[in-house]
């Protein structure tokens, strides 16, 4: 197979998500009364980047054939902590940001440590740690409220040069400075290898344990970055189980729409970003088409179900029925 055909088939999932997003976003903008102004783009970007970061976080454990059901809780916990400590002068605020991200790293490391050294299943581990992280968030912020350093918040939630939404730039920086280096590092390659076949990876000398712990730790970092940016959008913190649950579930859906296999070893965080954009644009489309509010949850649910059912196409390509069971 020639080189470019290989690249296309290798990234088919990501490309499908990009295409889907491009079509949906074009429909959205052409039906929006204001058109594509910086303000419209910023509003859309601010909402989408939150889910995109949480979806990136979810992707990495999924690549190792794991799952992180605590990403939503880490997201909420980071939001609550940020609303308490990202205050004061700009310098103090930035220090607070670092602390919030450190907490996310610690949460992710705890997940990884329990999965690797405790040898518990990721699903049930992160289900339980998710409850713990949510409890801590509730302890920090029993009622919604709090504050945030306004200069940093307005900068991140605003536009660069009055045109480009800063949140998008942040996302781009995360891709360039975190995801791409990680992907080509031994740890990132290890994550793919572990997800594809853990025994074979182990036999080939892949640092299986390190790769898994790094995957969960990085997930914690990305989820807390999402929570931090949420605080800059809302200027407050709220320990809401509903928000955490929605983000966790939507992150899984975004990962699947972005072409990453839930069976591990295949996919990319960039696909998940566009998966998240697709999910967000669905909500925006419901808004511009003025669907009766009562029908919106049903419509969203059906679109979600249809989108994930696209994964069934692989069934028709399988020649040997035994391959169905993998």
């Amino acid at each position: 197979m020639s080189d470019w055909r290989y690249h296309i088939s290798h990234n088919l999932g990501t490309l499908t998500a990009v295409g889907l997003f491009a079509v949906m976003f074009t429909i959205y903008i052409s039906n929006h009364e204001a058109g594509l102004t910086p303000a419209v783009a910023t509003t859309a970007a601010n909402k989408a980047v939150l889910l995109a970061l949480v979806a990136m976080a979810q992707t990495i454990p999924v690549l190792t054939r794991g799952l992180d059901l605590s990403v939503g809780s880490v997201f909420v916990l980071a939001n609550c902590l940020a609303s308490a400590i990202v205050v004061g002068t700009i310098g103090q605020g930035l220090l607070g940001c670092v602390a919030v991200l450190l907490l996310g790293i610690v949460c992710g490391f705890v997940n990884g440590a329990i999965v690797v050294w405790g040898r518990l299943q990721p699903i049930i581990t992160t289900l339980a740690t998710g409850a713990i992280f949510y409890g801590i968030a509730l302890w920090i912020r029993p009622t919604p409220g709090g504050d945030v350093q306004y200069d940093i918040a307005d900068f991140v939630a605003g536009q660069l040069f009055g045109v480009v939404p800063t949140a998008l730039v942040v996302l781009l920086l995360v891709v360039l400075l975190v995801w791409i280096p990680y992907r080509s590092s031994p740890l990132g390659r290890g994550a793919y290898a572990v997800g594809s076949n853990e025994q074979a990876a182990y036999m080939s000398g892949v640092p299986v344990e390190k790769a898994k712990i790094a995957a969960y730790t990085l997930a914690g970092f990305l989820a807390s970055l999402g929570g931090l940016i949420l605080t800059f959008n809302t200027y407050s913190g709220e320990a809401s189980a509903a928000i955490g649950g929605t983000y966790t579930l939507n992150s899984i859906a975004a990962v699947v729409i972005g072409g990453t296999s839930l069976f591990g070893g295949w996919g990319s965080a960039i696909g998940s970003i566009f998966g998240a954009f697709v999910l967000r644009t669905i909500e925006d489309l419901l808004f511009v088409f003025d669907l009766p509010p009562l029908w919106q949850p049903l419509f969203q649910g059906v679109v979600l179900l249809v989108a994930i059912s696209l994964g069934a196409i692989r069934v028709f390509r399988i020649r040997n029925r035994l391959e169905l069971f993998t």
Binding site: L67, A253, I308
Partner: peptide, 13 residues
């Protein structure tokens, strides 16, 4: 995990 998740959203709707 993902199919029942979608079904949950549809039933909710």
């Amino acid at each position: 995990m993902i199919f029942t998740l979608g079904m949950n959203a549809v039933v909710q709707g």
